[in-house]
Design a binder for these strands. Structure first.
Length: 273
DNA sequence: AACCAGGCGCATA
DNA sequence: TATGCGCATGGT
């Protein structure tokens, strides 16, 4: 892989195993939209960008700052050898089918707070509405970047609000959970930074101190917001997969990359009957 | 231990 | 156009 940085763009070439459309639109992240054919627009790290892909090259344009190569390489997990991981996962026949049906799914490494807050909102909810609630959250409480783009509001900002302030989001009973999460993160009671490296069970314990964060939301936060590919979120789809295909548990080849296996199986199971 | 809490997208009627 | 179903967590 090579990186080329210009004034308003970053170009990654010769990337292995990456599909931008699949990775941005498989239920991991909620703020990307395909604005025209093959152009994905969104905001992450307070940067408004457009991303497009041609074969093994991706181009990121828009708000590009010094040193941002690292941010986007991390976001798309470009320094992990997905080819090797997928080869190993394909030892299992179901995973082989899933990976070959949807090649190029990568685990996005989103900002921890955004992932935590997004997956609190995701509970007992469907994707169109999750996107709507998050959009309203950003419009009401994020910083205006112009052109209709807003940052994801910080925990510190939301910690000053009360449940009633969130009523325009129409997030229902999740509002009190958002406030509790914001307060615990802002006051340091929950330290999101250490979740990326501490013992994973300790990380789980840390997250479920937050009201509205159970096992599922905690695993999603660790997988999509902390780079923990050993986290394994079990939602209704994955539960079905486990019952139907793996009643004895996950196969050995998924060890330490359970989250990557999960993402392929989840997307495959949702898209075929 | 079953049920509801805010909704709303979705499938079915 | 109406009706029921699903959804993840906490509280009753």
């Amino acid at each position: 892989m090579t990186v080329e940085t210009n004034k308003n763009s970053i170009i990654f070439r010769n990337i292995d195993s990456l599909s931008i459309p699949l990775s941005l639109d498989c239920g991991q992240a909620f703020r990307w939209t395909e604005t025209s054919d093959g152009i994905w627009h969104g905001v992450a790290f307070s940067r408004s960008v457009d991303i497009s892909q041609k074969e093994n090259t991706i181009i990121i344009t828009g708000d590009i700052r010094d040193g941002d190569e690292q941010i986007w390489a991390d976001y798309f997990d470009l320094n992990r050898d997905y080819s090797a991981i997928c080869e190993k996962l394909k030892i299992d026949n179901h995973l082989k089918t899933a990976i070959e049906a949807y090649p190029g799914i990568r685990i996005l490494r989103q900002e921890s707070w955004e992932a935590l807050c997004s997956f609190i909102i995701s509970q007992n909810n469907n994707i169109p509405r999750i996107k709507g609630i998050i959009e309203r959250l950003c419009v009401h409480f994020g910083e205006d970047l112009g052109n209709g783009d807003f940052t994801f509001p910080s925990a510190e900002k939301l910690a000053f609000l009360c449940v009633d302030d969130l009523s325009p989001l129409r997030s229902g009973f999740r509002a009190k959970y958002i406030i509790d999460a914001a307060q615990k993160v802002a006051n340091g009671e929950v330290d999101l930074r250490k979740l990326s490296y501490c013992d994973i069970d300790e990380a789980r314990q840390e997250l479920i101190k937050i009201k509205g964060v159970g096992a599922k939301v905690a695993e999603c936060t660790l997988l999509y917001g902390c780079g923990r590919v050993d986290a394994f979120p079990v939602d209704v789809w994955v539960r079905r997969i486990m019952q139907e295909l793996y009643p004895e548990g996950l196969p050995e080849c998924t060890k330490d990359v359970e989250g990557i296996a999960q993402q392929f199986l989840f997307h495959w199971r949702r898209n075929v009957e």
